[in-house]
Computed example of a mutant assay.
Amino acid sequence: MEGHTLCWTDIPVIDLDRAIAFYSAVLGAPVTKEEGEPGVEFGLLPHDDNTSGCLTLGGDNQPSLTGPLIYLSVDGRLNEAVAVVSANGGIVQQASHQIGAYGYRAVVIDSEGNRIALHSATA
């Protein structure tokens, strides 16, 4: 198998502009507002290959505290990312901590009510 196991994710949101501001601040890179089908807007997460995702409005998906835990890379800037969570409408559920040989993570609730993990190879 070539490439990454996770190739895309749709993160459900309630307020697209608020979610774009949250993820742009936490990821330290712009999340861009895009239009797919006419009248369907989404927030495209930063990416440099085919592994990424977007913020989506409506449909069957709803923000969740109990669904799959998606890890987003903030490599080398985990403390900075965690520091801006609260100021952008999120909640730090688990502060930065080591996850064995796999690096470090923090678990946060985003501005929309989704539980996500922020990951970095270094503290």
Rank of each mutant, 00 (worst) to 15 (best):
M1A: 14
M1P: 04
M1L: 07
E2Y: 00
G3W: 00
H4R: 09
H4N: 13
T5Y: 05
T5E: 15
W8I: 03
T9E: 07
T9Y: 02
D10I: 06
D10G: 12
I11A: 11
P12Y: 02
V13P: 00
V13N: 01
D17Y: 00
D17S: 07
R18A: 12
A19D: 06
I20M: 02
A21M: 05
F22L: 02
F22M: 03
S24T: 15
A25Q: 09
V26F: 00
L27K: 04
G28C: 11
G28Y: 09
P30L: 05
P30S: 10
T32D: 09
K33S: 08
K33Y: 00
K33E: 12
E34K: 15
E34V: 12
E37F: 09
P38I: 12
P38F: 11
P38N: 06
G39R: 02
G39Q: 12
G39P: 01
G39A: 13
V40K: 13
E41S: 14
G43T: 01
G43A: 05
L44S: 07
L44I: 01
L44G: 01
L44Y: 06
L45A: 03
P46K: 13
H47M: 11
H47N: 10
H47K: 13
D48A: 10
N50Y: 14
T51L: 03
T51N: 14
T51F: 03
T51W: 05
G53Y: 03
G53A: 10
T56P: 00
G58W: 03
G58D: 04
G59Q: 03
G59S: 09
G59F: 06
N61S: 13
Q62V: 15
Q62C: 02
T66N: 14
T66S: 14
G67Y: 02
P68N: 15
P68M: 15
P68E: 14
P68S: 15
Y71E: 04
L72Y: 14
L72C: 04
L72S: 08
S73C: 10
S73H: 10
V74T: 10
D75V: 04
R77N: 13
R77Y: 01
R77E: 13
L78I: 14
N79K: 15
N79V: 13
N79T: 15
A81R: 11
A83R: 07
V84S: 08
V84G: 04
S86H: 01
A87E: 12
N88V: 07
G89A: 05
G90D: 04
G90W: 01
I91Y: 01
Q93E: 14
Q94A: 06
H97E: 07
I99N: 05
I99G: 05
I99S: 00
G100A: 13
G100W: 11
A101M: 09
A101W: 00
G103M: 11
Y104G: 03
R105A: 11
R105G: 05
R105K: 12
A106W: 07
V107T: 14
I109K: 06
D110K: 10
D110A: 11
E112I: 09
E112K: 10
G113Y: 07
G113W: 08
N114T: 11
N114H: 09
R115T: 06
I116C: 05
L118P: 10
H119K: 11
H119G: 08
H119Y: 09
S120R: 02
S120H: 04
S120E: 10
A121W: 08
T122V: 15
A123M: 12
